[in-house]
């Protein structure tokens, strides 16, 4: 201990805050459809033609209201990119190692990030065909899709 830090201490503390988040009408329709119908919905901007998932009220490029332009997407898609999470952290949704993948669903123009399960992490490849596996109980978040798994 040097003279300078002789009087320095570390005090344990906590930052704990409750909060809630409202999905809004557009987000709620998406989540309720996942939960009750096991259908994945996107929205299409008719100006630029892009199909967005998760849906949003406004096209970020064209600044058009697209909240009513629903399209049903396929529950299957392909891996466009992925990474293997190899460290554990209490905030992570799964125990390591697990695969986080960018998945482009049939009919969508934007990929979504999700968990890829039911597969050896070392055998995942870009272009791999995957399908959504829905959660059994109400989750009311993106994890209403529990994970994706390879087709066959």
């Amino acid at each position: 201990m040097t003279e300078e830090n002789k009087h320095c201490y570390i005090k344990e503390g906590k930052l704990a805050l409750p909060y809630q988040y409202f999905a809004g009408r557009v987000g709620s329709k998406f989540l309720v459809s996942l939960r009750d119908k096991k259908k994945i919905l996107g929205v299409k901007c008719e100006k630029c033609g892009k199909v967005f998932i998760p849906p949003r009220k406004t096209c970020e490029r064209c600044f058009e209201d697209i909240s009513e332009k629903w399209v049903e997407l396929s529950n299957e898609g392909e891996v466009t990119n992925f990474t293997v999470v190899r460290t554990d952290d209490k905030h992570h949704p799964r125990k390591a190692p697990y695969v986080l993948a960018m998945i482009k669903l049939g009919g969508a123009d934007t990929p979504i990030a999700h968990i890829l399960g039911g597969v050896d992490p070392d055998s995942v490849k870009t272009g791999m065909k995957v399908k959504a596996v829905f959660a059994d109980k109400a989750v009311n978040t993106m994890l209403q899709i529990d994970r994706f798994e390879p087709v066959n």
Partner: peptide, 26 residues
């Protein structure tokens, strides 16, 4: 309470009105 919109959607209402008020586009 604004359960009907999420944060960006609520902000967008104000943004749209300001642009309209100014008579310009984003």
């Amino acid at each position: 309470h604004r359960e009907d919109v999420n944060q960006p959607e609520m902000i967008h209402e104000a943004v749209e009105r300001a642009l309209k008020d100014a008579g310009i586009g984003i």
